[in-house]
Design a protein around this nucleic acid. Structure first.
Lengths: 237, 237
DNA sequence: TAGATTGTTAATCGATTAACAATC
DNA sequence: TAGATTGTTAATCGATTAACAATC
C-alpha cells in the first residue's frame, strides 16, 4: 500500500512510466478533468438551481442547503463544486446565479447545436412535437423515420431514413438523435458515423463512441422503470 | 441546522455496536442485498440478452462476450452475476435463457402492475400513446392532466388532476407516473403520497421516497442530453 | 484428458465522508 | 468581533480489477 496517488498539481509532466496494465483499468484523470460521478450529478444541480431562480430571488445558497435539496452530503457538494472550479465564499456560501452559470457552462448548455432526429419510436416523436430540444439549445433541422416517410410532424416533413447519409454529408449537423427500433438502428448508426460531433441515442439498443467516432450518450427511459419495479421488490400489499 | 435525518430503517435492528457515525454514511448492505451499481447495470444486461434471444438462438454466452457487448470488464460481469445469484458453469459460460430469466426476475419485469399517468408534458404523452408501458408489464388505468382535461388520448379520456387523490383512494394503482411541469408536480405528488407502491417520475423536478413513502425513481431525459453536450466539450470542428 | 471458463479472494483504485483550519 | 461556511486534506469505505484455483 505504497500510495503514489499524485495530486493534480503534483506533476503534469508525468511521463507515465509504468504502462497501462490493462484495457479495463480506467484511464487516470488528466489534469483538470472532472470525474464522471461528479459530471453525472451536474444536471441535478442545474435543475435545482434553475427552479430556485425561477421561484425566489435568492442571492446565495450554502452547501448544506444544496445538499438537502439534492439529497446528498454537504461535503459532496463542496467537493463537486470545487472540482468544476466554482468557488464560494467562507461564511457566506455560493452565489446562486454565478453557480448556475458555471454549471450551465460546464454542461455546454449555453451553446447552440443543430441536430437531426432519426426515428419517431418511443419518445422520439415527443422530441419533434415539443420544445424540449429548443430548451437545451438544440435546433432540430430535419426528421427521419423508416415508416413515417412523407408524414408531417409539426413543422417537419418526415424524410426517408435511407437519405440520412446523403443529408448529413450535404447539410451536416452537430448532433444526431436516434430513436429507432433495434432492427433499424445499426444501419442508421453506420450511416451517421463520422459525420456528426455527438450522438444522443434514446433507442433501446446501445451505441458506443468507438463505433461512432464521437461522444455518445445512451438513455433508455424504461431502464428507470425497471429499476423502480426492482425497488418495489415483488411481494407486499 | 442540527441534521437529524434518520434513514427510514435507521434502527430496526440497531445492534450494530459502533453506531452510525453520520446520516450521510451509506447504510451497510444487508446480507443478500445487491449493491446499487450492480442493480443499475442490470437493465443493460436485460436489453442485451433480449436482443441476443431475438436474433440468434444462442444457448450460451461467456462473461468475456457479455463484457464485450456491454463495454465492461469480464471480471465485472462475473461479479455482477454472482451478486444476483446467477451461476454459470466452468468451461461453458452462462445459459442465455436462464440468465435472462434471472435478470428479469430480479428487476421485477415478470410481474404485472397497474399505473396511472399524471401529466402529458414532455414524454408523458408518449407513454399513453405507445406500448412502452405494456412492454414492461405496466397496465395504464387512467390518465390525468391539468390542461388537457376532457381530451381523448388513445383509449383514455383525460381526467382532471384535481381528481387524482380521490381516484387513487377509490380505485388504487400500484404505480403513479408523473410527467408534469414543475408548478403542478408538488401538489400532485402530495395527493398521491402514501397511496401507491411506487413512483416513477419523468418530470424535470425530483421527488424523493421520504416524501412519497415508497420507492421513487426520477428520470429526466434531458439530463442525458446535457451530458452529451458536456462531453462534446465546446470547441472543435 | 486438455481446454475453457467460472467463482471468488485479495489487491487496487477511486469516490465519499469527516474534520478542521482558513477566512469572509 | 463572533458566527458561518468554505476549501481541502486525510480517513474511510466501497467498487472494480486481477489473478488463479476449481471444475465442467
Amino acid at each position: 500500500m505504497n500510495e503514489e496517488r499524485k495530486t493534480e498539481s503534483a506533476m503534469f509532466t508525468d511521463l507515465e512510466i509504468g504502462a497501462i496494465p490493462s484495457v479495463h483499468r480506467k484511464q487516470k484523470l488528466r489534469d483538470g478533468e472532472v470525474p464522471e460521478p461528479v459530471i453525472k450529478r451536474l444536471p441535478r444541480y442545474f435543475r435545482y438551481l434553475r427552479e430556485l431562480i425561477n421561484e425566489n430571488d435568492r442571492l446565495r445558497i450554502s452547501s448544506a442547503e444544496l445538499a438537502e435539496g439534492l439529497h446528498i452530503s454537504p461535503s459532496q457538494v463542496r467537493q463537486d463544486l470545487s472540482c468544476i472550479g466554482q468557488t464560494g465564499q467562507q461564511g457566506y456560501g455560493y452565489g446562486v446565479i454565478q453557480l448556475y452559470n458555471k454549471i450551465s457552462e460546464t454542461l455546454g448548455v449555453k451553446q447552440r447545436y443543430t441536430a437531426v432526429l432519426v426515428g419517431l419510436f418511443g419518445c422520439g416523436r415527443a422530441l419533434a412535437e415539443t420544445t424540449l430540444l429548443e430548451q437545451r439549445g438544440v435546433r432540430l433541422k430535419a426528421v427521419f423515420d423508416p415508416e413515417a416517410k412523407g408524414d408531417r410532424i409539426g413543422q417537419y416533413e418526415v424524410l426517408d431514413t435511407a437519405s440520412l447519409c446523403e443529408y448529413l454529408s450535404a447539410e451536416g449537423a452537430d448532433i444526431v438523435i436516434f430513436s429507432l427500433k433495434e432492427e433499424a438502428l445499426k444501419d442508421a448508426a453506420s450511416d451517421a458515423a463520422g459525420k456528426v460531433r455527438g450522438v444522443w441515442n434514446i433507442s433501446q439498443t446501445e451505441l458506443f463512441s468507438d463505433q461512432m467516432g464521437c461522444p455518445v450518450r445512451n438513455i433508455s427511459i424504461c431502464d428507470s422503470l425497471m429499476l423502480l419495479t426492482q425497488a418495489m421488490g415483488g411481494r407486499e400489499k
